[in-house]
């Protein structure tokens, strides 16, 4: 018992002395970087972090591991992130969900130091093969004549999909009803004709598009997708809807600026590697994923907050 106690003490003393050099920037990073995210293990964000993590480890010699803290609109993940020590070894993978939580007053975006926005996806409205709507014009004509009659499957209540469709309703002046599902039920309910259409990103939907089971009507981006040259963008139609799901890294607001700089350098190197680019292409995320550094990303976040506030206000979700 006594020997165990002394051993613990010794280890403990060693701990406090070793902790000091770790804080110096030139020796950074010297251990594993942990990236907290609020999605499931094996999900899109988890895979994104691992995909960056592989080249990151080759470049920096330190690994980068995802820590999944699911549920609660990202609140438990955020709480965990807030409680951790600011030592440069804890990042958070953020997405539009954090912007939404900020607008709903649950979290503060200024508690993040934006590091790098890496992926930027684009959503679409898709209808099943059996749908009477061939083009987005048919679809909108019906929506205008019968407000609220068309149902669009979305994933998660009061989340990103809801915001995109809310903005679409505002911009078009027509009204479609959103029905929140889990992501796989959304697809099956659309295929089965329970709802008229769904909102989904290109990557997960491309198998169904290729087989002809689903028809994309409109894509929410500035430019048409090279793989879908016939599908118009919302912007072309005169509706300014370009919101897309993005994936990014953030550090705590009071992170050491030297750490931010070092880490951004490592991340941008990792993202530029063929290994990462290949994985990104396999998930069909390459079309508008432009890497944004801390400052550009900060500006991007601010513009996002503006749009989301407008939409969520209109949906009656904010107080």
């Amino acid at each position: 018992m006594l020997s165990l106690k002394t051993a613990t003490m010794a280890a403990f003393m060693a701990g406090t002395t070793l902790a000091v050099p770790a804080a110096l920037a030139q020796d950074y990073p010297t251990r594993t970087i942990e990236v907290i995210h609020s999605y499931g293990p094996g999900g899109g964000t988890d895979r994104f972090i691992r995909a960056v993590g592989v080249p990151f480890e080759e470049i920096s010699g330190q690994s980068m591991v995802p820590i999944s803290i699911q549920g609660g609109g990202g609140m438990p993940a955020y709480a965990n992130f807030q409680q951790r020590r600011v030592d440069g070894y804890t990042l958070m993978a953020i997405s539009p969900d954090q912007i939404i939580a900020h607008v709903l007053g649950r979290i503060q975006m200024d508690s993040f130091q934006p590091l790098a926005r890496v992926q930027y996806d684009q959503g679409m409205i898709l209808v099943p093969e059996s749908s009477p709507f061939q083009t987005i014009q048919d679809f909108m004509a019906h929506a205008r004549e019968n407000p609220g009659d068309l149902t669009v499957g979305i994933t998660n209540a009061a989340g990103f999909d809801d915001t995109v469709m809310g903005l679409w309703n505002i911009e078009t002046g027509a009204e479609v009803t959103t029905v929140p599902f889990g992501s796989s039920e959304m697809v099956s309910n659309t295929l089965g004709g329970q709802v008229d259409a769904m909102h989904e990103e290109y990557g997960p939907a491309r198998g169904l598009i290729e087989s002809g089971d689903m028809r994309p009507l409109v894509v929410f981006s500035d430019e048409r997708l090279p793989v879908l040259p016939d599908v118009p963008t919302a912007v072309e139609l005169g509706y300014d809807v370009t919101l897309g799901r993005w994936r990014a890294f953030a550090m705590p607001a009071d992170a050491d600026p030297a750490h931010v700089e070092t880490l951004y350098g490592l991340v941008s190197e990792a993202v530029a590697t063929d290994a990462y680019q290949q994985i990104q292409e396999q998930a069909a995320l390459q079309y508008r994923s432009v890497l944004l550094g801390p400052d550009e990303f900060q500006a991007f976040i601010e513009s996002e907050i503006e749009v989301y506030t407008r939409v969520l206000d209109a949906l009656g979700l904010t107080d």
Partner: peptide, 18 residues
């Protein structure tokens, strides 16, 4: 498994990080 375990707070954190 590379799954995280709690490290505690304060001095215990420094100890457990080892």
């Amino acid at each position: 498994l590379e799954l995280p375990l709690p490290r505690g707070s304060g001095v215990f954190y420094d100890l457990n990080v080892l």
